[in-house]
Simulated assay, not measured.
Amino acid sequence: MKKYIYIIIIAIFTTNCGEQDVARYDAENGTTLIKFESVSSNVEVVIDSEVSIEIPISVSTYSETERSINIGVVALPDGTEDAAQPEQYSFNETVIIPANTLHTSLVLTGIDEGIESGDRLRLQLRITGANFDNVSIVEDIHTANLIQICPIPEDYLVGTYVLTSPGANIWCSGGRPSFIGNGVEVEVSIGDSPTQRVFQAKYSPGSCEGFNGPYDFVISLACGRATLALPVNTTVRCSPVANITIVDDPDRVTNYTTNDDSQITINVIDDINGSCTACCGAPFTNQSFTLTKL
């Protein structure tokens, strides 16, 4: 068994001496910076239905009158298999910024028109212009992921569960611990959307104490398939390459039925970015965790 790991903490202290010039931004008369507030969002469309989400947009200056900005679709290369089609979404290409505000949002509607279970279709959006002068548009693209989902009962996979997981492949000290917990009670709750469930757990608990969380583990429930919805980026690493990150394992699918939430096992890949490749042979495709209802 291999158990080599280093914990790296970087603390930056800044000391100010003497007189310094401080940059000040003019929120009344300066150049108006316009940007999406995030780079991506998920549009979870219930099967045979449609859903609308708000994509936040910010501006850096005030105005006593309302203003407008323009939004356009960035074309993906011909033949892109996961490109969303025009009939699968709709939005108003002109977005209004109310007077005396720094925020607005684009309302995007996802439509289940030909979206299949397991699809994750991409729609890329860009701010293309504004109806006022003295503007600077951030060129970042916002990617909206269209996903077909099935309704999930509010009480499904919610409550107190016992978390179990195999032995860890890497650890900091002492005897070999479990991957993220063994026989530990956790509270599972609804996440940011009705099809997400979230609980907290530590990485290599009892071994890397102080550096290992707890972290949010988010489970996605998509029409009979359960996955780890978001990467879990720990603060533990073996080398400067990257922090140890846990992601879903697409080759080991977990199926579920809403008739039974007594137990579920999610298969994952540990250290996907190879922080511990040199010492321990990462990434590890043999990891998983199981939740058993009390």
Rank of each mutant, 00 (worst) to 15 (best):
M1C: 07
K2C: 12
K2L: 13
Y4L: 05
I7N: 13
I7F: 05
I8Q: 12
I9G: 09
I10S: 11
N16D: 12
C17K: 14
D21M: 08
A23Y: 09
R24F: 11
N29Y: 13
T32V: 08
V39I: 11
S40W: 14
S41R: 14
V43C: 02
I47R: 15
E54L: 14
I55R: 03
I57W: 02
S58T: 05
V59W: 01
S63G: 11
S68H: 08
S68Q: 13
I69E: 11
I71C: 12
A75L: 02
A75Q: 09
G79R: 06
N92E: 14
N92L: 08
I96F: 03
N100I: 00
N100G: 01
N100K: 11
I111H: 04
R120H: 04
R122G: 05
Q124T: 08
L125A: 09
T128N: 10
N131V: 09
I137W: 06
V138F: 00
I152C: 07
E154P: 06
E154W: 00
D155G: 10
L157G: 06
V158D: 01
G159A: 02
T160G: 02
V162K: 10
S173N: 06
S173T: 12
S173I: 05
G175L: 08
R176D: 03
S178I: 05
G181H: 10
V184H: 05
E185F: 10
V186D: 07
S189R: 14
I190R: 14
Q196W: 04
R197S: 08
A201T: 15
S204P: 06
N212R: 06
G213D: 06
Y215M: 03
Y215A: 03
Y215D: 05
I219F: 01
A222I: 07
A222C: 00
C223I: 07
C223W: 03
G224W: 10
A226D: 14
L230G: 02
T234A: 01
T235M: 12
V236K: 01
R237T: 04
T245L: 03
I246K: 03
V247R: 06
D251Q: 09
R252Y: 04
I264W: 08
I264Q: 03
D271H: 11
D271K: 08
N273A: 03
N286V: 03
Q287T: 08
S288C: 00
T292F: 06
L294W: 01
